[in-house]
Design a protein around this nucleic acid. Structure first.
Lengths: 232, 232
DNA sequence: AATATTAATTGTCTTTTTGACAATTAATAT
DNA sequence: ATATTAATTGTCAAAAAGACAATTAATATT
């Protein structure tokens, strides 16, 4: 029988950087690691790739298990494969970033795992190379979000322009002019204005919008340029 | 001693889509596979990730071994990890695309491997999921090249605007207006005009240019928009 | 009831970039 | 001297971007 004789075999894992938005700040979801080494230290959500699943499958499984959510926006970043990145045994990890509606998560909290949202800039030190993964994920999120309409994935079905505005500023860590932002975002044709207003933030209230799902599906790959003076 | 008990282990490989440009057409470099199964079928350049190297290291090693070239432009695409993608044994493969100066390669041909350049649109069927990898690589190359000045990696040190023009048209499979292209490409400030001319293509001759390496290093991450009406 | 307050919403102008168009130039060949 | 061929360069209108602040719609206050 044919075989690949004496080639080394490795563990393969996935790690997910889960982003959320609480209306004011960008956050990431971390868990306390449940196995040695570094047990009880904060880490990304991850797990080993099982024998009958692809890495993408594994990432979805891990997210489902730890957040209860399915069909989450998930994007493969890169593989982390330095020989010594895991001190116990050689493990290669496929890094993903996920965008979830933070409110959906809170409704489905899974008590089996000690998970907690952290402000992106006030997160604890993480194990292994997970700090690097987070840095890479932020960069990739910024890059992608400047060109593709993906940040909607972090907002509820009904959202306001000011909410979207703050989210873009958070992700890009920059100020964006209200008028120019509003013009750009509406000119995409992706937004449908609703009659209802969100009165929680101001006396006047801000109109809710929803995504035009058809156009969103068609334009998910389309180029936009939503962030001025973008530095990548 | 701590260990990750009874987790499955897999082979991890790398596969490289090597792009080159012969002055007229985009090409890819393929090799005849040297091991079973599918021995003597055309495939991408690849190999297993060794115990003391990262996937990036492995990709560079494979390229060095098969082309003689070092310091090649190499970009990680994604991992291919469907459980049954390799019929013999579960193998995950990290896909890379490489951009090389086809002339440098020809000077250093390695006879240990049966390698051959194929027109991108006239390539043979490849083994496993390598056909999909090539399709993904083309897409990613197009995407990246529309935003970043990477196509220079496929040209000699001295090149002409018409050469660059054809290369952009090839990669994007579209016609680009000469005047607009020239304006855009020169406005990047990345090109330095040389006194010498390339007389091989016309009576008038086309001026050679070279890259401004300092600006290139600084702008490798900078956004351009070199292809009009880009569809990704 | 009139006024103050607060955040949401909208508008204009200038500059820059894009895209669509063809004439001119520099060499060699006839 | 002229023809030929590909390289090079120019103009204009439309669209997009960027800089800038006034107006509006609600509630809160006097």
């Amino acid at each position: 029988m044919i075989e690949y004789s004496r080639q080394p075999h490795y563990l393969v894992a996935v790690d997910c950087i889960v982003f959320g938005f609480d209306g004011e700040h960008l956050k990431i979801l971390l868990v306390k690691r449940g196995l040695e080494p570094e047990i009880n230290k904060w880490s990304l959500m991850g797990g080993f790739v099982g024998p009958d699943e692809s890495p993408d499958d594994a990432a979805n499984r891990v997210l489902k298990k730890m957040t209860g959510l399915e069909g989450v926006y998930l994007e493969q970043m890169q593989i982390y494969g330095e020989p010594a990145r895991d001190p116990i045994e050689r493990t290669l990890s496929v890094g993903y970033f996920a965008l979830i509606d933070i409110h959906k998560y809170e409704a489905q909290l899974n008590d089996d795992y000690e998970a907690e949202w952290f402000l992106i800039n006030e997160r604890p030190k993480l194990i292994f190379d997970h700090n690097q993964m987070v840095a890479d994920a932020r960069k990739k999120l910024r890059y992608k979000a400047a060109l593709h309409p993906i940040l909607f994935e972090m907002l509820p079905k009904k959202f306001t322009i000011p909410q979207l505005h703050i989210l873009f500023e958070e992700v890009n860590d920059t100020k964006i002019d209200t008028r120019n932002f509003s013009r750009k975002i509406t000119s995409t044709g992706l937004l449908i204005k609703l009659a209802e207003k969100d009165k929680t933030g101001s006396k006047k209230g801000a109109f809710y919008f929803k995504l035009d799902k058809k156009k969103y599906a068609a334009n998910a790959q389309a180029f936009l340029n939503l962030v001025p003076n973008l530095k990548v």
